[in-house]
Amino acid sequence: MTPDQPHIPPSDPEGMADLRRFEIQEVRYSLPEMLRELHLERTHSFFAKEIIDQVEINKIFAEARARRAKAK
């Protein structure tokens, strides 16, 4: 048994059934919501104030140039 598994005695089938009821079947994330969160983080949090070096700056501009070239 791992530490985060609840202790269920093998002779407790009812307990197992209860647990199964709460098992997560599926997790869905909303893409617009995630993008909104990402935008908020980038503009309003510590992430926006992150100091970046010249290598990272060059990477950002190279990506932007590639995107512009593709758009043309």
């Binding site: 980038r42 992430f47 926006a48 104030k49 100091i51 970046i52 010249q54 950002i60 501009f61 932007a64």
Partner: peptide, 24 residues
């Protein structure tokens, strides 16, 4: 002198051709 990520990204969006840190 201080290249904050947001400012660099804003500069890209505003149409800057490049960006140089003064300590480069």
């Amino acid at each position: 002198s201080l290249a904050m990520r947001k400012i660099v990204e804003d500069a890209v969006r505003a149409g800057a051709a490049n960006f140089i840190r003064k300590d480069t």
